[in-house]
């Protein structure tokens, strides 16, 4: 029992990395007052571009760079159109997702002659860290480098958002746009920065997904960008909450992977578990919040 639980937690931490990265990216845009439904598309572009980058440059670092830059480019297009052409952020987000799912398949067909799964035998693997300590500290050691990076980058995001002037202003845009404008600062500039940062994080999240797997499948993200968005809401837009929410989702996915092998439950039902848990989590959270507000309202 304990052993199974430990195993589940270990695989949950690995599964969590892409989700946590994308959710942290979503945190920036959410705090700046933009609904970023393009996380899914940004992740997808990051996943494809990084694996293509590693294949062509034969270097993990350059591949990651290519992946992140591509997804940042898409987020820049998204931000420019949304902010400077005053478009609806929900619709441009859908556009970005559509564009991402199109361009990845088109390029994979054009570059590798294959619309489906791309796997390379010669692809470099992500290096694992602290493998020697994995026996003594099963929950902390032995993951690949991007798993650690996802937590480090979450802390970095916290520092940036809560301990720098830039971060205070970025949150200020979401909190009260006019207040920031009255200080002579441009709200658009901070939203733009938030969007590009979300591109950076989500792109890295996508890279963590495909490089860990060592291959690219069309729609490899399979709704993870959306789940990341739910994690932002559920984590109450706070870094620690996001970490917790991402871990819960990742644990649910790890459990569904485990159950698939252990019991003879149809895989379709098990694949639905992460969505079902997200659904119940968001419902319970909203019920709780609404009740709290109603009680406060009555007290006043």
């Amino acid at each position: 029992m304990i052993h199974t639980l430990t195993n589940l937690s270990v695989s949950a931490v690995t599964i969590m990395a892409p989700l946590l990265l994308a959710a942290t990216g979503g945190l920036f845009t959410e705090l700046s007052g933009m609904l970023n439904i393009a996380l899914e598309g940004l992740m997808l572009v990051g996943a494809f571009a990084s694996i293509a980058g590693v294949y062509f440059t034969d270097s993990i670092l350059l591949g990651l760079l290519i992946g992140v830059v591509s997804s940042m480019l898409l987020s820049m297009i998204l931000a420019s159109v949304t902010l400077y052409l005053k478009a609806n952020v929900f619709i441009t987000g859908l556009a970005a997702n559509l564009f991402a799912s199109g361009i990845t398949v088109i390029l994979s067909f054009h570059l590798f002659g294959n619309r489906g799964v791309i796997t390379f035998d010669t692809l470099k693997e992500l290096p694992d860290l602290f493998t020697g300590f994995a026996q003594q500290m099963p929950l902390i050691a032995g993951y690949h480098v991007l798993t650690y990076l996802s937590v480090v980058l979450l802390v970095a995001a916290w520092v940036l958002l809560y301990r720098t002037r830039f971060g205070v202003r970025l949150r200020g845009v979401g909190f009260h746009e006019q207040a920031l404008a009255s200080l002579g600062l441009s709200p658009h500039r901070y939203r733009f920065a938030a969007c590009v940062l979300s591109g950076l994080y989500a792109g890295l999240g996508g890279a963590a997904l495909s490089l860990h797997l060592g291959s690219f499948v069309p729609n490899i993200t399979a709704g993870r960008g959306w789940i990341a968005l739910v994690a932002v809401f559920l984590g109450q837009r706070r870094p620690i909450g996001i970490l917790l929410a991402s871990f819960i989702f990742a644990f649910a996915e790890a459990f569904s992977n485990y159950a698939q092998g252990a019991w003879s439950v149809p895989s379709d039902f098990l694949l639905a578990i992460p969505y079902a848990i997200s659904l119940f989590a968001i419902i319970f959270y909203s019920v709780f919040e609404t009740r709290k507000k109603r009680i406060e309202y009555r007290k006043d």
Partner: peptide, 19 residues
């Protein structure tokens, strides 16, 4: 590939809601 249709759709949706 069929996915070139997405390019048309994406361009439209990027611009359609621009006020």
């Amino acid at each position: 590939t069929y996915e070139i249709a997405y390019i048309v759709q994406a361009v439209i949706f990027f611009l359609i809601s621009s006020s």
